[in-house]
Design a protein around this nucleic acid. Sequence first.
RNA 1: GGCCUCAUCGUCUAGCCUGGUCUAGGACAGCGGGUUUUCAUCCCGCUAACUUGGGUUCGAAUCCCAAUGAGGUCACCA
Length: 443
Amino acid sequence: MVVRTRFAPSPTGFLHIGGLRTALYAYALAKHDGGDFILRIEDTDQKREVAGATEALQKILQKFGLQWDEFYIQSERQKSGIYQKAAEKLVEEGHAFYCQCEARNAHTDGYSTVLRDPCRDKNLTSGAIKLRVPDNETISYHDFAHKKDISWDSNTVYDATLLKSDRFPTYALAAMVDDLDMKVTHILRGHDWLPSTPIHLLVLKYLGGDMPKIGHLTDILSAETGKKLSKRRDSVFCEQFLEQGYLPEALLNFVALLGWAPKDNRELFTLPELVEHFDAKGFQDANPRFFLDKLKWFNGQYLRKKSDEELLPFIRQQAPKDASDKLLLQIIPLVKTRISLLSDFATLANFFFTRPVGVTLSGEDKSYLKVAEVVLKTCDWTKEGIETKLLESVKANSWKNMGFFAALRLATTGAKVSPPLTESMLILGRDETLTRVAQGLSR
RNA sequence: GGCCUCAUCGUCUAGCCUGGUCUAGGACAGCGGGUUUUCAUCCCGCUAACUUGGGUUCGAAUCCCAAUGAGGUCACCA
């Protein structure tokens, strides 16, 4: 039987880190088996929908290479009446009932959830539809992520709403109808769904069909608070990380290892490699914390792994608009090992595009520069030529390399720390280098 | 508060299912050193963990129970 998984976000905003991870695991689980990955938009709550969110979700998923095989929108499917029909069928079969109670909102009545709805035995024929939870039963399933059986006493499960009075289904109905209808074999979702699983199990059972396997992923905890990552407190959107200068493959690799690990503890995975090695046995039980240290390391790894040409489009975004590809291609190899974020490029390589300003040199520095100026004017303009001549004069004056090159570096790049000096001067050219040396001397 | 889940270095984790090879392995971070005209890369080394208490057993990080701690959830939201 071919594996079919789905990622089912509601279109309420950008894709957050946890969503990316869920999508990635669902994708890898399906693709490892040559199966199908489904993208399903869960927009049955009209009030919460954000315009453009669906398109943004699709775009970012594709940026990470998570291409879906099938695409559905619940509000579209709703029009055919499938959810309503399913709910009515459950009423007919005695597994659900009509209810005309006023809708409750979250926590308005404290923690005293009404388990058995007052309408369940009124035999109403219209209104919202709720699940008739059986008494004194054990509801259980095997969680394929946690690799263990989890169960509830049905007496602790409440009569959940399946169809709202606006005729739209709730998640409990729509997602289950769809998973059955779409022949989803593995439901992979966040841990926050675990408490409502008994409801879904009942709905799945009453609806009939092949029971999908269910697995719950760990929550990603905030590094600061230790609580579940929240959009309000933490920066969690994938788009933000990309803007900050992280490579998509680095983010993806980092996130892949937050809650999953292979037996051999390998860490570097491209998407195809992850698919190849993916195994549900590697799912973690404990909640990981969202510390960014390793993400930076991953980014450096991928930065260095990419060829200069592959890096070009990313670097171009960080460079001045009029910078030529030819120039950028010369600079990239010099900065590649020196940046961990793409956005570091600007500070490190700025001197290639604009002359350093506000640099003040000591008298000692200037005596170094005077000598350097003479050498630079006449030496061969090659790495060999520049370095041997410069070194010769340092030796002739019994100076130390450190101080001499620091002064020259400061004059040409405007900073104490920079990409390799000789290579940088070669890129700048003899004239520009000399101009900068002269400028340093004049201050 | 009820229900559910979880518990190995600061962090991500391997080991746990199928007890002994674990004086607990790797990676990131930190620290120290080497290479390097700066910085970085690269290389070498060091610091650092089985939550606690009971059991079971010749033997427990590994199995069982409890306590403690952590997280989640309790809507006509997903």
